[in-house]
Design a binder for these strands. Sequence first.
DNA 1: CGGCATCCCTTTTGATACTG
DNA 2: CAGTATCAAAAGGGATGCCG
Lengths: 118, 118
Amino acid sequence: MTPTPTHTEGTETEPLDACPALAAVDEIGTKWRLIVLHVLLDGEKRFNELEQETGGSSSTLSRVLKELEDSGVVNRRVEDRPLATYYSLSESGQELTPVFDELKRWADSNLQVSSKGD
Amino acid sequence: MTPTPTHTEGTETEPLDACPALAAVDEIGTKWRLIVLHVLLDGEKRFNELEQETGGSSSTLSRVLKELEDSGVVNRRVEDRPLATYYSLSESGQELTPVFDELKRWADSNLQVSSKGD
DNA sequence: CGGCATCCCTTTTGATACTG
DNA sequence: CAGTATCAAAAGGGATGCCG
């Protein structure tokens, strides 16, 4: 039965990008972007620090950081004095906090940190 | 995959594996997993429907579905009568709702469906 | 130190074809 | 319809080296 599925809008085109959530997934839904974003939630970091805290290589960081900058979620600030580059979350980037907050909550409830007593 | 944080555990600056959010990213933080999860949030779907609604190929769906089942976020149900397989979110999977809800909210506020024509 | 280019290996994804 | 296997292509990611 159910010849009339209410969810079938009859759209032949994949409205994947038409859905805000999917659009978001497309923008930040990759492992490294999420990792970098998460680290940045802690505050402004230098390229150097990101490498260490994320465990990613410079090439990877360089790429992801640029993607994130392009997406407008990350801000880059160059300091002349000590001559250092600082990365931080932009306004929209910081608004991702609740997302990570819920993710963390979910993980805490449904995932187990497993045996970390190694 | 598996970032394998082989960094020096001597510092407490990179508790990547100790962070639940990162563990979650590791479990569901991939494009296809997020897409499938999102579609499943709409309700129980057949393999067939998932292929069309996600736009993924059978091999990709098959793989991702299995990963999700393995993670315990997706449940598989085989119906004998019409002989059909139904996929749905498990308890933990459904608890991802707030995550996607926040993600959608973020996208709606910070992302714009913008120019999708060109 | 920040960042990029290059080389190269690994993972992901898709097409296609085939089976139950 | 559901699901798998194989193969080839693409993207991801790391190591190294180099330059500002």
